[in-house]
Amino acid sequence: MSLLSLSRLSVTRRRRPVLRDVSLDVAAGEFVGLIGPNGAGKSTLMEAALGLIPCEGRSSLADLSAAERARHAAYLPQSREIAWPVSVEVLIALGRIPWPGASNAQDRAAVDAAISRMGLEPFRHRTANRLSGGEQARGLIARVLAQETPLLIADEPIAGLDPAHQLSCLSLLRDLATEGRGVLVSVHDLGMAARFCSRLVLLSGGAVLADGTPDEVLSDDNLARGFGIRVQRIETPEGTAIVPAAPL
């Protein structure tokens, strides 16, 4: 079942094309990783798909009302803003805003489930924006989980996290996909993307350069064309590690 369907999405900023004719589907159970160099249009693609910026073409989410969209797709933006010193519990409860009809018990159950899933029980009453970066990131992911949407869209969820948090974050997202949600994330770490995502989409210059399994997409040719780099591959028991070796 397709949870997100983009067809010929294009975005122009100041008469410069940022996204060109991007077509993409995310189905339930898929963990799709968006990769590509800085400025390739990864964030723009997510914003356009969510209907947050004007665009040409069609996104299946754009047909929904803003409220329905928020019950279908949860979005973790790149900016990890927490403007006020609210408690972790209150922060996570912000994910319940799209559900005004839900009972208090339903809201509490969703927040509790998100807290326990992210292992945030000890931090429940702590002030969210005074926690460490990793703990804040977990709180913000928990907020997205509390939204209880079939589709999750996360813009660089592991940027700025230590290796342990990177691993636990990506394996959580993979588990969510295994449970039947659709997950779309942008990642810079190619090795991590190859290891966790079920499918990769390589964006370059605002267009899709390659779309397929990690092995197909991370070919030497694609990496050279997309990133302008040569990579070294090291076989490990956990899979192939991809190390950027030199610019071309």
Binding site: E47, P77, E81, A83, W84, L91, I97, P98, L140, Q147
Partner: peptide, 20 residues
């Protein structure tokens, strides 16, 4: 009130939470 709560997470996250 609710829209201002959502803005705690920034303008984009608030928009994605259904705030116009």
């Amino acid at each position: 009130g609710r829209a201002l709560d959502a803005l705690t997470l920034g303008e984009q996250a608030a928009a994605a939470l259904g705030v116009s």
